[in-house]
Write a protein that binds this DNA or RNA. Structure first.
Lengths: 226, 226
DNA sequence: TGTACATCAGTGAACGCGCGTTCACTGATGTAC
DNA sequence: TGTACATCAGTGAACGCGCGTTCACTGATGTAC
């Protein structure tokens, strides 16, 4: 089907699908992903439970779609922020805003996994888009020389992990980033996820300090060599 | 009741309680915390569902107890490791072992929160024990001078976050750690949680590299000023 | 040591609930001639 | 433009299930005299 030529039925259909998802997100926000109920969504929309099966194959299908949308949203945010030229700091702030806008959406992507669940391949592909955008940004902020055999990786001595990455960079696809950039991208991911997820989970409430200052401090640790 | 003088009934009682919890942990390991079912536990133990109400007030009560036990276990691990003199590295490895021993237990403490749930005060107190042990270890590894007004905080320039912490260190109780130590303790927590939780959630599977090397690299970033 | 009583673990039946999902069916909306 | 047909959104009833939880009761284990 060509874009812009959607029939009224198709338009209606995708509109209802969107409404179902919207209600699903509301439910997740208030009760977590495990509290999502098809019947409750239908009731919210003023329709009967079985009606939802016109739009989704079942509960699992709906959840997978929500997860996919969450990844897609983050990937788009990363891509456009990366292209905006605001650098690592811009990307970090975009990540933080995205997470704070809907904490449970963040946790749907990076939170406690359901044992035994494996994401479909197309979601894995979106995760790689996210990584690619991150690598791009880490790349432009890098002022060193490319890797060469036997060349020391300055500034900053190469550690054991960077050496290990030299033989394990398949995950970066064909991205030409030097080792220290791969290293920085991974630290960006793990360090910011560390602060952010603890903040969103409420582990800092009652401790008194401002989480955004801590976030910024961790962000700066990525470039200040600290 | 004095220790060591437990009546046979009391001994039996606490034994059954322990068995119930053990089955509960098994269920959580295979289906996550939201899949925990009292009836299923009872069936596992060969008893009827209502029997469990002799031991726990209800499902919520059991879960709260499991969370408490998880915190207690981590606090004990931290305390004894801190006292063993193995330093930050020892503490980090202990944390990693504790997490890998039962990923879902880790997530019960640091994973996706249930919206609206608030932990009882005694659990918050255990969380403070954990922080205290961490601060102790960060303290002995610190070779600088104590904070003084106007004294630069070397090595490593004080950043905005450290300055902010100067006015917000109530969470550290009466611990005499200087600002850079508070800062390092928080980074220990957030950075290691970052790598660890992503590893446990399976976000590195398929990427190829060894998660423990990355963990070690992040650990070293805490002391190497990197 | 034996008897009378209290304690308490565990059972089985039952309640009410909400869940995901199927099925046959109605009625409106679109399409083809 | 009108008619015949196909498509498809949505309904209501029903199925089977497992859940947490209550209740009255049985029977074994402990305690007191």
């Amino acid at each position: 089907m060509a874009a812009g030529t959607a029939s009224p039925r198709e338009r209606y259909r995708s509109q209802v699908r969107a409404e179902i998802k919207a209600r699903a997100w509301e439910q997740i926000a208030t009760a977590g992903a495990s509290g999502l109920s098809l019947n409750a969504i239908a009731k919210d929309l003023g329709m009967s439970g079985p009606a939802l099966y016109r739009y989704f194959a079942g509960r699992d299908d709906l959840i997978t779609e929500l997860v996919r949308d969450a990844y897609r949203s983050l990937a788009d945010t990363f891509r456009s922020t990366a292209d905006s030229g605001t650098g690592l700091s811009g990307l970090a702030q975009a990540l933080r805003r995205w997470a704070l806008a809907d904490p449970q959406r963040y946790f749907l992507v990076y939170g406690t996994p359901v044992p035994g669940y494996r994401a479909p391949d197309d979601i894995t592909a979106i995760a790689q888009e996210i990584m690619a955008a991150l690598l791009d940004v880490c790349m432009v902020g890098d002022s060193g020389t490319p890797d060469a055999p036997g060349t020391p990786d300055s500034p900053g001595a190469p550690d054991a992990f960077e050496a290990h990455l030299a033989d394990h960079r398949r995950w970066a696809g064909d991205h030409p980033a030097p080792l220290r950039v791969l290293r920085r991208a991974l630290s960006f991911w793990t360090r910011l996820h560390g602060v952010l997820s603890l903040e969103l989970a409420g582990h800092f409430t009652g401790m008194g300090f401002e989480p955004d200052l801590q976030f910024t401090a961790e962000l700066e640790s990525l470039t200040a060599g600290r």
